[in-house]
Write a protein that binds this DNA or RNA. Structure first.
Lengths: 191, 191
DNA sequence: CATTACCCTTAATCTACCTTAAGCCTATTT
DNA sequence: AAATAGGCTTAAGGTAGATTAAGGGTAATG
């Protein structure tokens, strides 16, 4: 819980009254490796804050291949925002890559908090702005560079993730096959 | 100005006191075709609401090619959110594809409004959530389908944009060359 | 501790999409 | 009305990355 308070404090500190309201609206859970906290076809019921561990969010195409659209490690939020607010079934999966500890807020609790802690509207606005910018940079990168350049800038931007994740997951994030990532890595070694 | 009030009303209506605060913090401008309201290297100073006309937002790669990352027509917001908040130089351009009428809010005014109209935090949170979802869908589409599928779903998702935009701009948005789009269109005609 | 599942790599063949170049047509600008 | 720029298309040849298949290594699970 302290991890979440610290996270909010970095954007806008909450006072004691506000923190009291938070308590009881947030649920702590432990998640096993490979456990899913969201599956395609189900409505996304929670905003999830990662205290410990690492998740991937992905879609599955017609041929059954997975495509990672984001990772979330310590201090990140993860949710299918579209499904969450529209209450429509998600097209995405969220799955733990490592054993994890998370904090979850349900939609009714989040709306309660938005109505009773004005600051939280601002805090979540900032959180989503940051996620938006990150995603937009990704879109730009994706079509203005080769797979090798994308791999290099992934390493640069997420050095700690790069160590923790298997290359298959990174390949899926970069939009290439593991085989081709393997070739890229080999070519980079030579240089 | 009425266009903006209506736009906010769809999310959360503002009362008269709040509308009074808005007035004077929003500037109306007319923009010519091809005029830029943001250029690479400059800080993005405004959130821009499109009343009439159409804009493209794009980056330029090492080879000088443009890559459209979004369009904005009537009722859309457009800004380089990253540059706007960080006050760092943008890597993007925003340019009018058609003559346009816009409403702009400067950063100091937007922050004033966030502090004095609590609802606006919520309104802009929702606006950015929607943009985030749209962008996320795009990322998913981009690597789980061929250029032809992407073109078809662009036509489906933005039928009015598809009529208004030249194919060169659509190709740039889809991440393909105009030549290849031409081929796709030819192949589709046959079917 | 064994065994299964997953991960990483190499290499050959194949395809979606790019590049270049050229020609025509329709808008803008002068 | 002329001039020019921009937009659309065709086609030939080229490349980044996919696919398939196969072998060896390492980590998770019972």
């Amino acid at each position: 819980m302290q991890a979440l308070i610290d996270h909010f404090k970095q954007i806008l500190p909450l006072d004691d009254d506000e923190l009291a309201l938070l308590d009881g609206r947030v649920n702590a859970r432990k998640i096993k490796r490979k456990q899913m906290i969201l599956q395609e076809g189900f409505v996304c019921k929670h905003y999830t804050f990662v205290v410990e561990g690492c998740f991937k969010m992905y879609g599955v195409d017609d041929k059954g291949y997975e495509h990672n659209i984001q990772f979330a490690a310590e201090g990140d939020w993860i949710a299918d925002i579209g499904s969450f607010h529209s209450k429509k079934p998600s097209k995405l999966f969220i799955e733990a890559i490592e054993p994890a500890e998370i904090l979850q807020i349900e939609i009714k609790d989040l709306y309660f908090l938005y109505n009773n802690i004005a600051k939280l509207n601002r805090i979540f606005k900032v959180i989503i702005e940051n996620k938006f910018v990150e995603l937009q940079n990704r879109v730009l990168q994706n079509f203005s560079s080769t797979a090798e350049q994308r791999y290099l800038s992934f390493l640069e931007q997420y050095p700690n993730l790069a160590n923790r994740l298997p290359n298959t997951q990174i390949a899926s994030y970069l939009g290439i096959t593991p085989e081709f990532l393997s070739k890229i890595r080999k070519d980079l070694m030579k240089k």
